[in-house]
Design a protein around this nucleic acid. Structure first.
Lengths: 236, 236
DNA sequence: GAGTGGTCTAGACCACTCA
DNA sequence: GAGTGGTCTAGACCACTCA
């Protein structure tokens, strides 16, 4: 582990166990750098990671303060969902039901999001993810055939992300997401077993690889009572 | 403007106008640092800001790549909503309707989120924000009276954030948010003029100051057809 | 082995805050 | 004026990737 990661972990521990009181600033960068025997830049980097996690606030000329609401909740639960549901809910019983699986030419929208042309085929998949016997989310996913090869029903019953990482050796690094509320459709009601007036939390996502190339365009429709999305927002 | 900001802006411009092709990595750090006549650390910092905006991907031993989907959408539209609706929709005609405005002792949940005790009074406000004549969002907000003083109906008709910044001289720096889909209530239907089966996109937020102290706990209920939330997600 | 980005150092100067 | 964090430098060593 890097120095700054180790130090960030230690400082976080001190915040959480109240070694540092939230009534006053934590020690200044120079003192901390000296205590941990690192350069000031490294100390700053350690603190910056805690700032981006929403635990600390820094103010030039003033000091570094603990964000009181940091004590509350495990923050950013959902940021890891990019790992794939299989990974996010590791240890739970997850079953997949395949509702659709075919290959097609992309619509204009799909081609545009995946940066491919309209004659380049895509996989089209709809899966229902069932967690501990309860329907959780229905995912409609498009992936370019020439990038993500070898998808089979067997893969779809397991983890597509695992296939991409382990079989294809590709690195998934991020996504752009749009989150919205939506009315439930007949199809939602049937598969997610929800009432006609139950809303749906929809996440539209373009996932990309470490080459910057998009590999998936998907719509995940979640039961409104089983899913929330959390973020930390920091102004400049 | 700092060097790294100026350089980030220039590189972003080059990405957008296709000076750098997305088919191959952009020039390496050392070449760029030399071109811009800065140290490598500063060049790295400039590129890191573009990575966090979702425009670039970096891969050790390999290079720095353009994220193709970056060309698409203006990313992170909503991150700035912390500025307050008045600021976000600057130039539009925004009217506020005050549905409730009183002072009360906080519930256990409110006291806990605001880190105050249950005998410390809070403002309780419900406002309907009307944009260009159309109801847009209904906000229920709690603020500690001993921190955010001087709220009046006049302030509520304008911008509370402006009051906090300009009259009280406090600095708003961030928030923790939870986003969910919700059924519409009778009250939503009445004020947001929506149908009984229209869903609501709800954002629960704890906002905090540069001292780390929470100053607001709010629930914003948005019409599902007028609001989406966008994020950039990056794995480590 | 050559090229890439990641981390780290030991300093410097500066902007901002408070007294 | 003393104390704080923000930026910047000119180097160093390293881990990773590809050929």
């Amino acid at each position: 582990m890097n120095k700054y990661e180790r130090i960030a972990r230690e400082v976080k521990e001190r915040i959480m166990n109240k070694t540092y009181s939230s009534d006053q600033p934590i020690p200044d960068e120079i003192s901390l750098a000296s205590e941990f025997q690192v350069s000031r830049m490294t100390m700053k980097k350690a603190l910056d990671t805690l700032v981006s996690e929403g635990l600390l606030i820094r103010k030039r000329g003033h000091g570094t303060f603990i964000v009181k609401s940091a004590y509350h909740s495990p923050v950013n639960v959902v940021v890891n969902e990019m790992l794939g549901l299989t990974n996010l809910l590791r240890g739970k019983d997850i079953k997949n039901k395949i509702i659709a699986f075919d290959v097609q030419f992309p619509s204009e929208e799909v081609a545009s999001q995946l940066f491919i042309d309209s004659k380049s085929p895509v996989y089209h998949m709809i899966r229902l993810r069932i967690v501990e016997g309860e329907p959780y989310v229905m995912e409609k996913t498009y992936m370019p055939v020439n990038l993500i090869s070898g998808l089979t029903e067997e893969v779809l019953y397991g983890s597509i992300y695992k296939h991409i990482k382990e079989e294809l050796g590709l690195n998934i690094v991020g996504s752009h997401r749009t989150i919205r509320a939506s009315k439930s459709t007949k199809m939602d009601q049937e598969h997610l077993i929800c009432a006609s007036d139950d809303p749906i939390l929809e996440i539209e996502q373009v996932g990309f690889l470490d080459t910057g190339i998009p590999f998936e365009y998907s719509f995940s429709r979640h039961r409104y009572d089983k899913f929330v999305f959390t973020t930390v927002n920091r102004m400049r």
